[in-house]
């Protein structure tokens, strides 16, 4: 038997009883004590969500218009783009307070951290630049000119290449992190928002919000090898606006947030076929896995909540209220 939760006219199924029990038991062990940090673009806050209790437990005041958010590999610090303050803020996850900032350059929107957590790459939308920041020294190392309105930022698994997307130029720029220079440009569809590497480095996927597609790019040949399209019956094609992308560690599945289509697409990452659409909250933009990849969290801007997706079952199991216009999400490593 399954309990049902009716919310905003939609029926969401609770997980089966045995799973709830397993979760309750699991909650006592530290392995499940994940915390999600969600930037609320309109509130100027970060919601702290306890993923055991499945509820928001605290709200942290940050700078103006917080969007991009990443967490350090050790889980001690959050780095948050406060775009309207032209800074990246550092939040101590223990004290849950802003403890400093990084010299981001103007209007930072999205950022990416390398694996070791010592270099931060971020896009400056107004100035068509990518800034590289030394996190420990808190200083900018270089600025690299890219296309108009840079946004998406994806670091390759080996850290040697950063892919940046430019929203008006419609390109994925491949930046060599040693040379600190653009080494290749790949044309994709209109308004590319996000770049994500497969964990084996074999493919980079770039979402095009207005174009409505995801381009699969060969990072060696720098060519688009496949364009993934989406179609939801009864939904106008203009509403399908892909943004956030995440791959499972085994490289078998990809999840793509489809914006005002209010769905997350489940894509077979090997055949590139769309397998399923999961109904989440309204205007879904960014995604993040829990480190065990049991859950995927989506930020739903218009409905002011996040959805929790059970990755094994491919089902939405819960929505959790956060602040106003949730944008980005980062999850603690433990």
């Amino acid at each position: 038997m399954q309990a049902q939760l009716i919310r905003r006219g939609r029926i969401r199924r609770w997980p089966p009883l045995w799973l709830s029990l397993a979760l309750t038991v699991g909650a006592t062990s530290s392995a499940f004590a994940y915390t999600a940090y969600v930037t609320n673009e309109r509130d100027n806050t970060v919601s702290v969500v306890d993923l055991d209790k499945m509820q928001t437990v605290k709200t942290i005041q940050v700078g103006q218009r917080p969007r991009g958010i990443v967490i350090s590999p050790d889980g001690k610090f959050l780095y948050i783009c406060a775009g309207d303050d032209d800074i990246v803020q550092i939040v101590d996850t223990k004290s849950q307070q802003v403890v400093g900032d990084l010299p981001s350059g103007p209007d930072p929107e999205l950022l990416a951290l390398n694996k070791t957590g010592d270099l931060l790459y971020l896009s400056n939308e107004n100035d068509a630049l990518v800034t590289i920041i030394d996190v420990k020294e808190r200083k900018a190392l270089a600025q690299i000119p890219v296309g108009v309105e840079p946004e998406g930022m994806g670091v390759s698994p080996d850290g040697k290449i950063v892919v940046n997307t430019s929203e008006t130029t419609n390109m994925a720029h491949f930046i060599d992190t040693d040379k600190r220079d653009v080494v290749a440009n790949v044309l994709v569809d209109a308004r590319p928002r996000y770049a994500e590497w497969k964990s084996d480095g074999s493919e980079v996927w770039v979402s095009a919000e207005v174009g409505g597609t995801v381009s699969v790019i060969d990072p060696v040949k720098h060519v688009v090898t496949k364009k993934i399209t989406f179609s939801v019956p009864g939904l106008r094609s203009e509403a399908i606006q892909p943004v956030g992308i995440r791959f499972t560690k085994d490289g078998k599945l990809a999840f793509v947030a489809l914006g005002p289509a209010n769905r997350v697409a489940v894509v077979n990452a090997q055949t590139h076929e769309v397998e399923k659409y999961l109904l989440v909250g309204q205007r879904v933009w960014q995604l993040a896995f829990t480190p065990d990849q049991k859950y995927l969290i989506s930020t739903n801007g218009v409905s002011n909540d996040i959805s929790v997706i059970d990755v094994a079952d491919l089902k939405v199991i819960k929505s959790i209220q956060v602040g106003s216009f949730p944008w980005g999400v980062a999850i603690s490593p433990e």
Binding site: P103, G105, D127, T131, K139, L141, P145
Partner: peptide
């Protein structure tokens, strides 16, 4: 591209380096 808006945020040493090292061509 002009980096003037960016300058006040960079420490003195970084600023020095930023100015003397020629930016790589695009």
């Amino acid at each position: 591209i002009s980096s003037s808006r960016f300058l006040p945020r960079v420490s003195g040493l970084a600023l020095f380096l930023f100015l003397v090292v020629p930016a790589p061509s695009l």
